[in-house]
Design a protein around this nucleic acid. Structure first.
Lengths: 198, 198
DNA sequence: TTGACAAGTGACCTTTCGTTCACTATAATG
DNA sequence: CATTATAGTGAACGAAAGGTCACTTGTCAA
């Protein structure tokens, strides 16, 4: 089973790149963290850059599979409180799942250097979230739960502050609980502001 | 004039670190970009890390001088349109000033590695902006221009999306004009939502 | 004029980097 | 059983990294 090691290398790479970045990571430590010697890695990838490209391929594919198409859009909540609940569920996953955290960190660290990282970063941090909640808010407006307004603008106004708090968790993990409370407070403020009054 | 070169080194360091990061920058190229040979740099700083610390000192000091104290808070605008205007002025400066752009990029790239960078990043990207606009919105509520609400929550809801668009400009400079238009659209949406109705 | 010092040079050192290669152990295949 | 491909080893390589040092140059104070 060669492919097992191949994937283990990618996992270890994600871990190291998310901490030290591409330039700050060396193959010795990467191999050592897998219990093998550095030349062993070259049996599976021909260069450091090849590993990086494979990791990016995987991240891009993963994003495409899980957030890329319309099938994976979240259900429209059936109440304002449901929106808060859905939001908290999503945020709790995203700030506690190590793999997702490391993916964000890697994209953050390599966004100025690699074009594909740049593109995925914009999707991950901005347009993807906006698209997703544009759909949610459109549905909620149709059902009369939200005031009629530009759903895309609302989606942007809703997701950007939450994304900022998620980035705070990545930067200062000890503030995670506090940040989650802030997300909830913000979400409740949002529904109070934009919730339909009838 | 030794201190002239010392400052030129810091300027060149900011430029290189903001592009390639600390680990991705080498002293040879840094010196070359100043027209001197690498040992010349060591006449002014004893190590690469010393340069990094001096650069951080400078960034922290600059932030403290320009955004740190209450004296530097922006004036409370005298109309909702004034808020839009003030916002656009600030954003235009911040996304076009190369030094400010590079400062943000450096903080972005080193935030997971260096504790002081982490702290400054949080101030720069989150709490500093929130504090600033908490003051602005408090003043605007007092003057009856904004609906009474939690000024801190509003400041957060206002600045986080704008910061997200600024980060987009850093990541994809070719989208700067489009992003600026989005900032203005968001700002107008904000005053329509929270502006006092009387 | 001289002495001292700061700024800059170029050769050199050590370490670490990414990468290669001859080799071994293992396990499946004919 | 012999063979062959695969995964992993360990020594070695050249390049590039950060850093040192003896030396030159220019400036200015005594």
């Amino acid at each position: 089973m060669s492919s097992d090691t191949k994937e283990r290398i990618l996992a270890a790479t994600l871990e190291m790149f998310s901490q030290y970045g591409y330039a700050g990571t060396n193959i010795r430590e990467l191999s050592a963290s897998l219990g093998l010697v550095k030349s062993g890695v070259y049996k599976h990838y021909e260069s450091k850059e090849a590993i990086w490209n494979a990791l990016l391929d995987q991240m891009i594919a993963y994003y495409g599979e899980h957030f890329g198409s319309a099938e994976h859009l979240p259900p429209v909540p059936d109440s304002l409180e449901g929106l808060v609940h859905m939001t908290m569920q999503m945020v709790n996953i995203t700030v506690h799942d190590e793999k997702i955290i490391m993916t964000r960190k890697v994209l953050t660290l390599e966004q100025y250097r690699d074009e594909r990282a740049r593109e995925l970063a914009t999707k991950h941090f901005l347009t993807g979230l906006t698209d997703m909640f544009t759909h949610v808010f459109t549905g909620m407006m149709d059902k009369g739960m939200l005031r009629k307004d530009d759903p895309r603008m609302l989606a942007f106004a809703y997701t950007a502050p939450i994304a900022a708090l998620i980035h705070l968790c990545d930067r200062e993990p000890e503030k995670t609980e506090e940040a989650i409370r802030q997300v909830e407070a913000f979400s409740r403020h949002f529904i109070k502001t934009y919730g339909a009054t009838d």
